[in-house]
Design a protein around this nucleic acid. Structure first.
Lengths: 264, 264
DNA sequence: GGCACTCATTCTGGATCCAAAAATCGGAAC
DNA sequence: GTTCCGATTTTTGGATCCAGAATGAGTGCC
């Protein structure tokens, strides 16, 4: 009986273009000790979106997601609402949720704002920098430069920046930065997978600049790092948008092109 | 015990601490033509928090809210999740939701970041300014300077800034600004109600500066406007924190002290 | 042969019901 | 008299069930 159900779920997911197996695998990794199912589902779906398992434009049917993860629709709905607030998912009233895709214009904006905020955060942070922090940063930077695998790649970079800006003691500012990083994270990962390995040792270089103590130089290093990543992301996005006919109105096409770009 | 703090919180926090009547009245105003109940509840609760009907520290019991508004608990939960993402509500796992209160430090941060972002938005916007926009701005600015009543006051100001920064065509930037404005909106209203009427014609002055065309002067006007409001908000907040024992580090204590202040 | 209308299917959003966790209150022991 | 422990009650979080809206297919009409 349960096999029939699983079989049904498989066919259903194939029809809607959802990678149910990969989602189940992600679910397995997360099924350890959560206080509530809702936040677990949230983490699973966030991971899935960030790593491209759920590509931009992917239609998100509550029933299918619930079956793949093995819970009821309710926590899925909770998670989707949170993801909408994060800007990763888009709700169409009475017509379901879709993984939001980022336009090139939006990406440009995100990086412009990130530059404004992160330069400020860096300035504040350097005023409070200590040798211990530098040491931790060097370690985290090395990991961030090396890490390849999907979710770990995202996490490593987040940890690095969290430590970098933590000395500033500006929780609201960090929250804003995190939010912006979340919007572009998927595409950075895509770039990395496509072969952006030549980015070298960006994070270690940044650490060196911070250790040097010259705030305006460090700001320049940060700015150029952000610009480099931005340009790579834009290249991906522009290519993706050129490959589409009507733009956001064709979700299936979006999912296809982004998916192939990530794999290629 | 300091009587001055709790003006709004006093009446609201009787018994279980919820002003059910005022909430019902708000619900009535909103009960017109919504596509889904969830977003209606979201709007009602947002209004309630922004206007002080649900004061910071207020415990939010799902059942009570649902009954007051006249819906089931489910859309209330949806709304609370969204409000949490907005930073207006705080969830304590398995222990319920509470209206988040803002610390003085957080308020300072918000205004620092707003200054960064809004000066940039103004700069971009002025480059695209037209006489038609100026005319609309003047009208909206006048309304924003005059409007007294809770929800209308908030709305009028939002419309003004939306129009001011719209010419910049930076939706992501505006979204960020809006988010920050949401965090401090309640306290600005509080200041206004306490008697900040001497703020004069801030918005009209800003419009004049924009019309003048001198970007750096306009930026100065905006900066000083933000500083003035910030200082007023901080005055309110510092007074409030002085009346409390613990501070922001103990959420339970914060909620509790708000309750006891109400009873005292 | 193409277009429009209708009906059935599907999926979202809401309500009710149930279980588990936490707070509170009372009692007992020290 | 105070403190600790346990039971009761309250409240959240999750599952199932139900109704209404949107989509798509099929048929009839132009």
């Amino acid at each position: 009986m349960s096999e029939q159900i699983a079989e049904g779920a498989r066919r259903a997911s194939v029809g809607s273009g959802l990678n149910s197996d990969a989602l189940q695998e992600l679910a397995g990794k997360h099924q350890t000790g959560y206080r509530s199912v809702g936040v677990m589902v949230y983490d699973i779906l966030k991971d899935a979106i960030l790593t491209g398992t759920l590509p931009p434009g992917q239609k998100l049917r509550q029933e299918t997601l619930a079956e793949s993860i093995g819970v009821s629709r309710l926590p899925v709905r909770s998670a989707l609402i949170q993801l909408e607030a994060d800007g990763l998912v888009e709700f169409h009233e009475r017509r379901g949720a879709v993984v939001k895709s980022l336009s090139a214009d939006q990406a440009r904006e995100v990086y412009d704002i990130r530059t404004l905020l992160e330069v400020e955060a860096l300035r504040l942070s350097m005023a409070e920098m200590t040798p211990e922090r530098i040491a931790r940063l060097r370690e985290l930077g090395r990991t961030a430069d090396v890490e390849e695998e999907g979710a770990d790649f995202v996490d490593a970079r987040t940890e690095f920046y969290a430590e970098l800006y933590d000395a500033a003691h500006r929780p609201v500012l960090w929250e804003m930065i995190e939010q912006l990083r979340l919007k572009v994270g998927r595409y950075v990962l895509g770039w990395r997978l496509v072969g952006g390995a030549e980015h070298g040792h960006s994070h270690e270089a940044l650490v060196a600049a911070v250790e040097g103590g010259d705030a305006s130089y460090a700001a320049d290093v940060l700015r150029s790092h952000l610009e480099r990543v931005r340009d790579a992301v834009l290249e991906l996005l522009v290519a993706g948008e050129a490959g589409e006919a009507g733009g956001a109105s064709a979700p299936g096409a979006t999912a296809g092109s982004a998916g192939s770009a990530a794999r290629g």
